[in-house]
C-alpha cells in the first residue's frame, strides 16, 4: 500500500519534470529557460531522494546533494551572465 502511494508520488513528480522540460525547450527567452532549468532541478532533487529510498542505496542522497549544489552554482552564474556578460 505505502510503496504504491510512494510510486504514484514519484510518477506525479516525473510528469512535473516533463512539463518543466517543455518550458525549457520552448521558452521564448534565455532567462525563461534558466527558470525552467531551476524548476527542473528542484523537482529532480526529491526524485533522487525517492530513488534512494526505493532502492535502499544511500549513495543517491549524496548524488542529490551534489546535484543541488552544482545546479545552484550554475543558475547563479547564468544570472551573472545575463546581467553583465561573461
Amino acid at each position: 500500500m505505502a510503496d504504491v502511494i510512494l510510486e504514484l508520488a514519484l510518477v506525479l513528480a516525473g510528469i512535473g519534470v516533463l512539463l518543466a522540460s517543455y518550458r525549457l525547450l520552448k521558452g521564448p527567452c534565455p532567462p525563461s529557460r534558466a527558470v525552467a532549468l531551476d524548476v527542473l532541478t528542484l523537482i529532480t532533487i526529491p526524485l533522487l531522494v525517492g530513488a534512494a529510498v526505493m532502492t535502499g542505496r544511500a549513495i543517491y542522497l549524496d548524488v542529490a546533494l551534489v546535484y543541488g549544489l552544482l545546479s545552484f552554482l550554475g543558475v547563479v552564474s547564468l544570472a551573472r551572465y545575463f546581467e553583465k556578460g561573461v
Binding site: I5, L6, L8, A9, L10, L12, A13, I15, G16, V17, L18, L19, A20, Y22, R23, V35, A36, V39, L42, I43, P46, G50
Partner: peptide
C-alpha cells in the same frame, strides 16, 4: 506526505508552463 509534496511539485511545473 510525499504524495502531497509531489502534488505541489507538479503544480509548480504546471505554473511554469
Amino acid at each position: 506526505l510525499t504524495l502531497l509534496g509531489a502534488l505541489f511539485l507538479f503544480l509548480g511545473a504546471l505554473g511554469i508552463v
